[in-house]
């Protein structure tokens, strides 16, 4: 194995890791805000990828251009899902955790079924796009453009989210709601509006990831399943409640995946990710940067 091969693996792993971070950050945000894990997160990603695909197929809009549109649509979708379903799951007086897990899990099954019903189970993909198939080569190290742009979008999204939470009024309202939902009601903040906004924002972020991925990944009703578990592990590894944790978690997962494939048979590369997660939480039971 040459040094170049190792550098290439690490570079690919880093790019993929930033993308994992972008996929996971919506989950981290929603969890941090209201202590709910969205088990339909992978299906949100699937919907975003389909949206990109159809915008391309019917209106010839490049996935990169349609990314803001997809993110906006997912924002609405996320907020609606909160208002129609999740809001009621949070009212459960008993077994709140289980109710939330299984409500969102049931939602995931419904979304998969609906996708199969309306979009057929056929495999789709966007054959030609501005980014798809293009690659930059620096000293023999190849950096595929879709992943490269994905990584940049991911960094920008994390930076934007950081500024949003810490520097804007609404962001502070979110933080305050998270810390004490009862008290914010007294100062006139509508908890449901904040939560709906949080769900919308979380969904918009995964929508962004889906739009980027549509230009280099295949799309079918079950595509979310491959990414869902990685997203949960990413968030937990970084620590629930920490947006920065999801960022760091994503990078670690990407790098660990790439290095595991260098030393173990590639069919075992996920074992590396899982083992690192277990190792981290055994040492730090709240993940790397978790507060909860």
């Amino acid at each position: 194995m040459t040094a170049q091969a190792i550098i290439q693996s690490l570079a690919s792993g880093l790019l993929m890791g930033l993308l994992y971070g972008l996929i996971a950050v919506g989950l981290a945000l929603i969890f941090g805000l209201m202590d709910v894990t969205n088990f339909a997160h992978g299906e949100f990603l699937m919907i975003a990828m389909y949206l990109s695909f159809f915008l391309f197929a019917f209106f010839a809009i490049d996935p990169l251009l349609s990314a803001p549109l997809v993110a906006a649509a997912l924002f609405v979708f996320g907020a609606v899902i909160y208002l129609l379903i999740v809001r009621f799951a949070m009212r459960a007086k008993a077994n709140a955790g289980m109710v939330q897990i299984f409500t969102t899990f049931g939602l995931a099954i419904v979304m998969r079924g609906l996708a199969q019903f309306f979009f057929t189970p056929d495999y789709r993909s966007i054959p030609q796009s501005w980014l798809g198939g293009k690659t930059i080569s620096i000293a023999g190290i190849f950096l595929p453009e879709p992943q490269l742009v994905g990584a940049l979008v991911s960094i920008a999204a994390f930076a934007g989210l950081y500024v949003f939470i810490h520097r804007t009024d609404f962001g502070r309202a979110i933080e305050a709601t998270r810390e004490d939902p009862g008290a914010v009601a007294l100062v006139g903040i509508d908890k449901n509006r904040v939560f709906a906004f949080g769900w919308g924002l979380g969904a918009a972020l995964v929508g962004l990831a889906g739009a980027i991925m549509a230009s280099f990944f295949y799309i079918y009703p079950d595509v979310g399943a491959s990414f869902a578990l990685i997203a949960y592990v990413t968030v937990a590894l970084g620590g629930f409640g920490s947006v920065f944790g999801a960022f760091a978690g994503g990078i670690i997962v990407g790098l660990v995946e790439a290095t595991t494939a260098l030393v173990l048979p590639p069919s075992l590369k996920s074992v590396g990710i899982y083992a690192v997660y277990l190792l981290v939480v055994f040492i730090r039971p709240r993940g790397l940067f978790g507060s909860i």
């Binding site: 379903i85 009621f88 799951a89 459960a92 289980m98 109710v99 299984f102 409500t103 899990f105 049931g106 939602l107 995931a108 099954i109 419904v110 979304m111 998969r112 079924g113 609906l114 996708a115 199969q116 019903f117 189970p121 009703p221």
Partner: peptide, 16 residues
């Protein structure tokens, strides 16, 4: 996928 839709909807409704 109709079976998935029925099955998933029931899980959501009963949980809620």
């Amino acid at each position: 996928g109709v079976d998935l839709i029925v099955y998933g909807t029931l899980i959501v409704l009963i949980s809620l």
